[in-house]
Design a protein around this nucleic acid. Structure first.
Length: 895
RNA sequence: GCGGGUGUGGCGGAAUUGGUAGACGCAAGGGACUUAAAAUCCCUCGGGUUAAUAACCCGUGCCGGUUCGAGUCCGGCCACCCGCACCA
């Protein structure tokens, strides 16, 4: 291209993006076929998608961030693993099958094909040769093998337990999948059922999972905290209260309670047990007098709603059993035992002692049943010296009162003293109390009574009992052509599939019909990516080279579920010899959502929503008004919310890619908002980015046109021969390179974007001046060339197609994405002169330009010379002059 | 209730971690080019005093403190957001 012959062209994203995507794919730039374990590695991973059918903006934002990191790290010399796969098992495929009478497998693989096509158009630098879907036989075969290993190592158990049953989805749910008493998918209230289920023994790892959170210094504190709360460690005391008047037919002679407030033991005035406590069960099966009343009460408790509002309003009610227990320090004191609706069987021992003065629930209860309220902690006085409100339980620390030998001790000392004494006290040769650590974390129930999941590789033999399938018989494949017309688990009804011959005794046996929770599938996929075709779950050498994942990126919604399960899985896989790292994700980044405003009309109090595509916006008297395109009806502009089908405020990424291009959408996703915060999608915003894409293209065309002139081999390290203006732009470019690299290292993409905008403005001004200059000096040509190279290289991770297209204009042979990251020239960051603001008593009065080597005396002298400074000082005494090197001058004056 | 976070123009947000608050982008207003539109380019844009793009005053949720100097640190409030929760 020649300067005179230049006619600026518009950048055609449709042609350019297609061209580069084909080339990258053909040259396999992003595939790692032969791993060189002597190279430094970097594993960047984004949470793999569920193949719902279409890519949404959340995916685009997530994978754009990952791609920028991957491209950047490659340029920094790392061997980068950046794979993609599909979390492909799960309910939606089955629901679709029920609705449309399709095969879940076909539905899933069709969706994968479509979504992969969408992802390819975004130009992500993904190693597609490693693509896996969790519903692939080759994947779940290895998962079944892992399952058997875990079983043999005691990491999986089959046990009878109360589980959460979702009556709509007809399956069991893990505790983590129950939100406010409702199934996380179906939204209906879950029921409690006693079933024999498969459990992963995650609770054995509670302490380790908790402690090791401290090592995850590249995780958001928030996520670590959420996990810590979920594991819910509490140190307390388990105390056995001796039953004073044991009724006949009752085998229990002590009531075991758990408490963290044993310092308040002298304030105890009753005990309470859960409605489904063992003692209640025994009473119901005994010759107990009030058996009918008790039955009724238990029924009332079980009907109790578990929603938040209901719990807030629910009255504390109890039923006196007629049983009394002895106070462990004072046998003359007998505490009545109640069945109470606020005591949970799941927590602790399902029984408590109540201390009304220092626990709000106990106080409410005590008031209702006229039980003693004895304060045992001296309440602090408030600011006005008033005793703190007695209507409320005093739950803070303080000094002990009314507590015999504990009087005067602090709460902490009292706890220690109580524990010590009760540990020594015995009943039937057993210590009355034991210090225990209780965790909220329960074992992870993974049985699902569904078809579209990984079959659990076990058989039930009438003779031999429960047996794992032999390895050589793996995988246990899902049956094909299954009917979904009857509700419930199709596997259970498939007699042909269920019937097997026991490999041990040769008799008839039945296949296990439960499948794995899909969270099992996603708990180890990051390990499988390191060698997706291996005929064992992981290739030790490869998995240990690549793991841990250096940067994992995904949504905060997985803070507990997926991330906790994965942390457990890596430990379990370590124990069974499949890999050698405890923590699977070294760095974690949780990105914000993509939001959009909503449009609706009020239809008799019910909002009826419109898609952004159905709406146009007009401005009048400073306000925005929305109208429907179809009929010009005025609609209301609602709140800005997460894009969702129900609010119809979604934008299809594919439409944006065809209208504006992948680079535009990628740039938009990273601009403005910090990556951890939500971003607001606007039509104006995306149009503005597109303007920038065109502007950048024009600027690069013009710059490359200038730099194409002969620079006669000028070397820009000859700084003395570079004219001032060009020197300034070269320095600015290196400063941007420096700042940009720093921002990228800390994933502050929005700052990167702003830096590029800013520098583009400067460079544009500079190029305009140089274009009017007929005879550019070789030094100037060389500077333009260097600046263009830096710009293109650093923008490439975000807008790879556009920058490759520009790079092609320079005539360089090597593809841009293969070039190393530019080195910051430290000599160019050094400034000779600095602008220093001069303050008088902290108020800025003037600015001085000083040489870098200027002494404090020089600076002070120059500062005091300023007219405005003189005026501000006028008549006052200079007390002190603060000079912060390279920053600021502050003159402190006074009378 | 417990735990955590956030608060900066009309909006999204910068601010070298204690050193010129408002970078950059959006929106808005004005202008140039054009028959017109699109596209592009230029200017203004926190509030106030002012002829002024001279200078000064106020200004980072509120009150106070530390400091030569506070958006940044400390104490106390207020508001909003998120997570957990009859957890003993």
């Amino acid at each position: 291209m020649h300067k005179q012959g230049l006619t600026e062209t518009r950048y055609n994203h449709l042609i350019a993006e297609k061209k580069w995507q084909i080339l990258w794919d053909k040259k396999k730039f992003f595939e790692i076929s032969d791993v060189d374990i002597s190279l430094p590695k970097y594993y960047v991973l984004e949470m793999f998608p569920y193949p719902s059918g279409r890519i949404h903006m959340g995916h685009v934002r997530n994978y754009t961030m990952g791609d920028v990191v991957a491209r950047y790290k490659r340029a920094c010399g790392f061997q980068v693993l950046h794979p993609m796969g599909w979390d492909a098992f799960g309910m939606p495929a089955e629901n679709a099958a029920i609705k449309n009478k399709t095969d879940p497998a076909k539905w899933t693989y069709d969706n994968i094909a479509h979504m992969k096509g969408q992802l390819l158009k975004l130009g992500f630098s993904i190693d597609w040769s490693r693509e896996i879907a969790t519903c692939d036989e080759s994947y779940y075969k290895q998962q079944q093998s892992l399952f058997i290993d875990f079983y043999e190592a005691g990491l999986i158990k089959r046990k009878k337990a109360k589980v959460n049953w979702d009556p709509v989805d007809q399956t069991v749910l893990a505790n983590e999948q129950v939100i406010e008493g409702r199934g996380w998918r179906s939204g209906v209230e879950v029921e409690q059922k006693e079933l024999t289920q498969w459990f992963l023994t995650i609770s054995d790892y509670a302490q380790e999972l908790l402690e090791d959170l401290d090592t995850l210094d590249q995780w958001p504190t928030k996520v670590r905290l959420m996990q810590s709360n979920w594991i819910g460690r509490s140190e307390g005391l388990q105390i056995d209260f001796i039953i004073a008047n044991k009724p006949t037919d009752i085998t229990i002679d002590v009531l075991r309670v758990f408490t963290t407030r044993h310092d308040t033991l002298f304030g105890a005035s009753f005990c309470a047990i859960a409605a489904n406590h063992q003692l209640v069960e025994q009473l119901l099966n005994s010759s107990y007098d009030n058996i009918n009343e008790l039955k009724n009460f238990v029924a009332t408790c079980q009907q109790q709603a578990t929603t938040q509002e209901a719990l807030d309003k629910a009255e504390k009610i109890g039923f006196f059993t007629g049983i009394y227990v002895l106070h462990p320090f004072d046998e003359t004191k007998k505490l009545p035992v109640y069945v109470a609706n606020f005591v949970l069987i799941e927590y602790g021992t399902g029984a408590i002692f109540g201390c009304p003065a220092h626990d709000q629930r106990d106080l409410d209860f005590a008031r209702k049943y006229s039980l003693n309220i004895t304060p045992v902690i001296q309440a602090e006085k408030d600011e006005e010296g008033q005793e703190i409100d007695l209507g409320k339980a005093y739950t803070r620390d303080g000094l002990l009162i009314n507590s015999d030998f504990l009087n005067g001790l602090t709460t902490e000392q009292a706890r220690e003293m109580v524990a010590k004494r009760l540990e020594l006290q015995t009943h039937n040769n057993e210590p009355v109390a034991k210090r225990i650590v209780h965790y909220r974390l329960r074992d992870w129930g993974i049985s699902r009574q569904r078809y579209w999941g990984c079959p659990i590789p076990f058989i039930h033999c009438e003779e031999c009992g429960l047996l794992p399938v032999r390895r050589k018989d793996l995988p246990i494949r899902l049956p094909k052509n299954v009917s979904f017309e009857i509700p419930g688990n199709p596997l259970l009804r498939d007699e042909e599939w269920c019937a097997v011959t026991c490999h041990q005794c040769g008799k008839n046996a039945k296949r296990e019909t439960d499948t794995c929770d899909t969270f099992v599938d996603s708990s180890w996929y990051y390990a499988r990516f390191t060698d997706p075709n291996s005929n064992i779950p992981t290739d030790t050498q490869k998995v240990n080279y690549w793991l841990p994942v250096d940067q994992y990126i995904g949504g905060i919604e997985h803070a507990i579920l997926h991330l906790l399960y994965s942390r457990f899985f890596s430990r379990a896989m370590k124990k069974t010899g499949h890999l050698d790292c405890k923590e699977p994700f070294k760095g974690l980044f949780t990105q914000g959502m993509v939001n959009h405003e909503t449009y609706f009309i009020n239809d008799n109090g019910v909002p009826s929503f419109f898609e952004p595509a159905e709406i146009y916006i007009q401005q009048s008297d400073g306000k925005r008004h929305a109208y429907t395109i179809e009929s010009d009806t005025l609609v209301q502009i609602g709140t800005i919310e997460k894009m969702s089908k129900s609010k119809k405020n979604t934008i299809d990424p594919s439409d944006i890619i065809s209208d504006y291009g992948a680079d535009t959408i990628r740039w938009f996703m990273l601009s403005d908002s910090p990556p951890e915060k939500d971003i607001i999608w606007t039509a104006e915003g995306i149009a503005a980015v597109y303007r920038f894409v065109q502007r950048f293209w024009r600027l690069m065309q013009r710059s490359i046109c200038l730099s194409a002139q002969d620079s006669r081999g000028f070397d820009t390290s000859n700084v003395k021969e570079i004219p001032q203006e060009s020197m300034n732009i070269l320095k600015a470019a290196h400063k941007i390179l420096h700042d940009y690299t720093q921002a990228l290292d800390s994933l502050r993409f929005n700052v990167c974007v702003a830096l590029i905008y800013s520098f583009t403005n400067n460079f544009d001004t500079y190029i305009k001046e140089k274009e009017s200059d007929k005879n550019l000096a070789p030094a100037e040509i060389a500077v333009i060339d260097e600046v263009v190279k830096i710009m293109l290289r650093i923008v490439e991770p975000i807008m790879p197609h556009l920058t490759h297209e520009c790079w092609q204009l320079t005539g360089n042979e090597t593809e841009l994405c293969l070039l190393p990251w530019p080195k910051v020239r430290q000599d160019l960051l050094i400034v000779e002169e600095i602008v220093m603001p001069v303050q008088v008593n902290g108020r800025r009065r003037a600015e001085i330009i000083v040489a870098i080597e200027a002494t404090d005396e020089d600076i002070e002298h120059q500062a005091l010379e300023q007219e405005l400074v003189k005026e501000a000082i006028k008549g006052q005494l200079i007390k002190r002059v603060v000079i912060v090197p390279r920053r600021i001058v502050n003159i402190v004056v006074g009378q």
